[in-house]
Design a protein around this nucleic acid. Structure first.
Lengths: 333, 333
DNA sequence: CAACATAATGACAGCGCTGTCAAACATTTA
DNA sequence: TAAATGTTTGACAGCGCTGTCATTATGTTG
């Protein structure tokens, strides 16, 4: 059995391959009767155009890369699913690229990846979104890209984000409204811009409520469970310990819960805990965690759509979409 | 600036493009001095062969698809990372394909995906590995594939797995050795072959220890936290309730822990809990869960290597690799 | 040193599509 | 009805590689 190519279709439809190509690419300038005839034969033969041949002829692969260096599996799969949605709808393919290495060579590796795989563009996720070297290199090489939740926006590329500082303020206010005044904060990884904004929101809320916080109540973590555990131990061993702790993500909040558990501190009666991200663990622990849910998948989808639009029309101006996050109140507060 | 192609390299090296091609593909029959010269120029120009042109000329995309329909993000990313490792080493690309739909059309969709994207082969993960329709369709269409943890092995395709029944027996024995006789079991999703084997191991251990278990001690779940919660509530409300519960995965074990928590049952003093999979949650809850860790990433890497070997040489016989899982004893027992 | 075997190299077609440009056809206008 | 315009179609080159097969260089033998 011979492979079905554009030629097969053209022969059977008694038109030239160019006409079939026009139909495939919805180019217009094809009489409706002709188009219907071609379409019918394509369906009949189950013809699928060869991506390789198209890529070669067009000099564009219709593949975009998703770059991440993020320890949260749940976050990653959400991002992947959103990006895949957008890709499917636009007939693009997605290639995933975790970069587990922190190395100096990351910039080089990325450029190399794009060149070797002939990617049409990239989606960047935090914390890579905040890597100036990489951003600059991509800009220099004129490789289209879009960012998910970058620390700051830029007119040089499209991006999507949540207003983390607003939400951070909101959840802090919620704690204040519940009667807490001694609210500890566990900061996330320093590279992660959005995490910094969560902290900013926390500070703003306290300021607005005229609450003074000692330096001791603010502890550095790195988003991991263990770092949350350690940070919380420090907070909870203070002579005048906080009655509420806001951790910049759920893993650290889970660590906080465990620290409380070890120290025999009851949650939420003696200590309220809030996390961030609505990671699965926030539902799976007891008491379940109050947290913040971002529409991660939707954000990734939007970023991908923006990227694809930019690839299709490089002159298109860059956009920045802001999404709303949602407070989820559970048992830990 | 003109794009660097094989012609550019050939011209500069004063050889034919065919010779450059030979060097690129390590074909042999190239004098060492010639090869070194070509290699030097490739490096100098930073030449990268066009995947599209190669795919077109070879009629093979060097892309494999990873198919999954699995709710566990941690598992998925482990599998992805393992598969990516193998792909990178062999200069293959990986395209991920979650199939969230349960639909009848899944078989058709998969075949379609392979044809449209011209995938060279597929990696299947549970529970799709046990879908006879899909397996048969792939076999019929002569699409190469390999399975990760299928319910049963077959000489028609390569696969990798852990001996879940052996491990299930082992962990049950561990509970028995700790003095438990009343051991409940929460079964996983019925489609999932490996889960069934975990149950088999449990039964074998009890049989060997001459322990009789009432039907009541065995409850059906579906791998989700909620199903574990419900199942555990049933078990723990029995008049003669179990002193230990073996859940077929960690999410259900986490649900069990929560049920115990709600009912005021102390873990591990009044109830021992073991899970399966070493999901992140097993470390992040208090008390942390005793569980079983499978080398998921390594398994995926091996499966991918087997697939690639098969793609390169279709006459190669199929292999089945068995991996060892590891008991991880934590606080819940 | 001729006659042969073998290793190294190159010329060229072709993979399946898209882009360019010219040709054919249809429609309007004078 | 002829010319002028616009619309639809097709011929053909070329994208950057690999496969086939012919050719040339090198080594080996009697």
């Amino acid at each position: 059995m011979q492979r079905v190519t554009i030629q097969t279709v053209a022969d059977k439809a008694k038109v030239s391959i160019k006409t079939v190509s026009r139909v495939l690419n919805k180019e217009g300038s094809v009489r409706e009767t002709t188009r219907d005839k071609v379409l019918a034969i394509i369906a009949e033969l189950g013809y699928e155009p060869s991506p390789a041949a198209r890529a070669l002829a067009r000099n564009s692969s219709k593949i975009i890369g998703l770059i991440y260096d993020n320890p949260s599996a749940a976050y990653i799969t959400d991002v992947q699913n959103g990006a895949l949605n957008a890709c499917d709808k636009n007939e693009y393919s997605l290639v995933i690229h975790p970069c587990l290495q922190e190395g100096e060579s990351l910039t080089e590796d990325l450029i190399n990846l794009v060149q070797r795989s002939r990617l049409d563009g990239l989606i960047l996720t935090p914390p890579i979104t905040d890597n100036k070297l990489i951003i600059q290199a991509l800009l220099d090489k004129k490789i289209p890209f879009a960012c998910i939740a970058p620390e700051q926006t830029s007119s040089n590329y499209s991006s999507v984000s949540c207003n983390d500082s607003v939400i951070g303020k909101e959840i802090t206010n919620y704690l204040i409204d519940s009667g807490h005044e001694k609210i500890g904060f566990i900061i996330g990884h320093a590279d992660h811009g959005a995490a910094t904004q969560r902290f900013t929101g926390y500070q703003e809320a306290l300021l607005a409520a005229n609450i003074n916080i000692s330096e001791d109540f603010i502890v550095q973590g790195d988003f991991s469970f263990e770092s949350g555990l350690k940070a919380a131990e420090r907070l909870l061993n203070l002579s005048d310990r906080p009655t509420a702790i806001f951790a910049a993500n759920d893993y650290m909040a889970a660590g906080t819960l465990r620290a409380a558990f070890s120290l025999g501190i009851k949650v939420p009666s003696e200590l309220a805990i809030v996390g961030f991200d609505d990671a699965p663990v926030s539902r799976q622990i007891s008491p379940s965690l109050s947290t913040v849910k971002q529409p991660v998948s939707k954000m990734a989808e939007t970023a991908t759509n923006l990227l694809i639009a930019k690839i299709k029309d490089p002159k298109k101006s860059n956009e920045h979409h802001v999404f709303n996050a949602e407070l989820i109140i559970r048992e830990s507060t």
